[in-house]
Every structure is written in C-alpha cells, then in structure tokens.
C-alpha cells in the first residue's frame, strides 16, 4: 500500500485529539484505492497478514498465472455456492442473536464463509471470464450448485446451530483433503479455510453440548432442530461423474470418502451430548437432493431475490 500523501492541516497534526491514525488523510488514502481497482491498495483490506485473499486470486487470473479447467471450475462453483448461500443465511443473525457474543461469533463465521465463497467463485469464474459478482448476482436459481442444507432457513438458534454443526464437520473433512489437491489454487484456498472451519466446529459442538445439556426447553429445541436438518446430510456425500473425474485427477475428492470421518466425529459429540439414541439419525429419511444439478428447494428463490435485487437494478454498475 503506497503511503498516502499527508494533507492533514498543521493544527490538526499538532493536536493529539484529532490526530488519530488514518483520520486526517482520509480523502487521499481512499481516492487511490477506489480509482485503481487494485485490491492491495484498498483502504478496506480486511484480511490481516499474508493470508490468501480473493483479490490475490483475481490478480493471478488477470496476469494469466492461473486458470482452472472446466471440471475444476465447476467443482469450485459447488463449494463456493455452498459457502455463499450459508453466509447469506448467517448474515441475517447479525443484530438478532441471543447474546452480543453470538452476534460477533455468527458474524465471524458468516464472514469466513463469505471469504471462502469469494475465493472459490473468483477462481471458478476465471474459466468463463466472469467475476465473483457476475456469478453471485447474475446467475439464476437453477444455475446455483449449492446443496440443499445450506439454503435451509435459519429457524431458531437451535436450527442454525444444528445446520452449522453438520456444515462445519463436513467442510473440515473436505478442506483437510483439498489442502493436498494437485490444483495449487484449490489447495491454497482450502488451507486458509481449514483453520477457520476448525473454529466453526468448536463453536457449533460447544453449543450442541450446551443446548442438549442445558434446560428441558433447549434440549427439546435441539432435538427438533436436528430432525429438521438431518435429511439434507446424505446429499453432501454423494459422488457423481464430476467428482469421480476430479478424484482421479487428484484435484478434488469423492464426497463419499469423507463420510466415515464425519460420522465418527459428529457421532462422538452427539454421544457426549446424550442425543444419539433420542435422535436415531440413521432412521431419518434422506432428501433426494439435487442441488449440484441446480434443482433446489423452495427456499433458494427468496434468498437470491433479496441478495441480488440491488445489483440487478443497476446492471454493469460498479460498487
């Protein structure tokens, strides 16, 4: 980031009350970033340190350093869509959570998911000369590749936690394996995401324990919540032609290969919570799914309508 030229008036520089970092030079500090479009010059750079950012991937794409083949792009689109739809759901909790600490925690998880979505979508878009925003805002419902679990409504806090518990254990296993992908960009995004998803696992597991072992009311609600979202588990682990090809090329993994570890680790938490018998998860019928082929539930249309409305009112505009 280039050092902004200092245009702070002398009297303000001398007065400690108005010399807070970045305040006096606001106009200059921001002007360069807005005009250049270079992510690294942005005043709103939000990822600290050297962590991989979507802007870095976009830069590599522009320089012609990376480009996914059609299969990898389609795969990145699936994973990116999962995270995007979940981020959109979780974002709704901010300012509505049961405790301020949870406004912060759910907001954090939403931000992490959105970050992963941006990276995967940016990368996927390179195959079709589309940006992350083209993909997020200008595709129609049947063009989204997210699994049904991610579009399930927030419900009460227990439903959100149950959904989050499944998602974070699934994503952890997925990203853990993708860090070894032969596609360097997929591996790099997965490596960053893995650390964050590990925290998401901890957050949701702690809440499953608390809700199951808290009051009668909370136990009733978490049981109901799991029954509501568990039908969407099977879809996450379904293999198809794409994943078979990717697994052979060692760029992706067969979803079914994640299932044993997922069952083992979630089972341990559910057992500690004393929920295993009561839930009898193996007896819950599994929904047919179809999200990977663009067949969605009734929920996604509303979610997209809200997410896309402003961008579509101003096609071609930049924000």
């Amino acid at each position: 980031m280039t050092a902004p030229e200092n245009t702070t008036p002398e009297h303000e520089r001398r007065n400690p009350d108005f010399a807070i970092e970045g305040h006096g030079d606001i106009s200059v500090g921001v002007k360069g970033a807005g005009a250049s479009g270079d992510g690294s010059a942005s005043a709103t750079r939000i990822t600290p340190g050297n962590a991989l950012r979507p802007e870095d991937i976009a830069l590599e794409i522009r320089r012609g350093q990376v480009k996914p083949n059609e299969d990898v792009a389609e795969y990145a689109l699936r994973i990116g869509d999962d995270s995007l739809i979940l981020a959109q759901r979780l974002g709704h909790w901010i300012s509505r959570a049961p405790e301020l600490e949870e406004d912060v925690a759910l907001g954090n998880i939403a931000l992490d998911q959105l970050g992963h979505a941006r990276s995967f979508l940016t990368y996927a878009g390179a195959a079709w000369d589309k940006s992350e925003d083209d993909l997020a805002y200008f595709r129609r419902e049947h063009e989204f590749r997210s699994a049904h679990l991610f579009e399930q409504p927030n419900g009460d806090f227990a439903v959100t936690i149950a959904r989050q518990f499944i998602v974070s254990y699934y994503q952890f296993e997925l990203y853990k394996r993708l860090t070894g992908s032969s596609d360097q960009t997929i591996a790099a995004i997965a490596a960053k995401a893995l650390k964050e998803v590990d925290y998401h696992r901890d957050h949701s597991a702690q809440w499953v324990l608390r809700l199951a072992g808290g009051t009668e009311e909370s136990r009733r609600r978490i049981v109901r919540a799991f029954k509501l979202v568990w039908p969407y588990v099977e879809e996450l682990f379904e293999d198809d032609e794409l994943t078979t090809r990717l697994a052979e090329a060692k760029t992706g993994v067969q979803p079914s290969s994640l299932r044993a570890d997922f069952d083992h680790l979630t089972g341990a938490v559910l057992q500690e919570a004393g929920l295993e018998e009561e839930l009898a998860l193996e007896r819950i019928p599994q929904s047919l799914g179809g999200g990977r082929q663009g067949k969605h539930s009734e929920h996604l249309g509303y979610l997209l309508a809200e997410m896309q409305v402003l961008a579509r009112e101003h096609p071609g505009a930049s924000w």
Partner: peptide
Amino acid sequence: RAPSLKRKAILMAKVQ
C-alpha cells in the same frame, strides 16, 4: 442486499 460480495464482507465486518 449489499450489491457486491466485497461490500457485503466489509459491511458484515463493520456491524460486527
């Protein structure tokens, strides 16, 4: 409803 994903991320972080 944020009109780009970057703006959505920034806004989420801000409200947080």
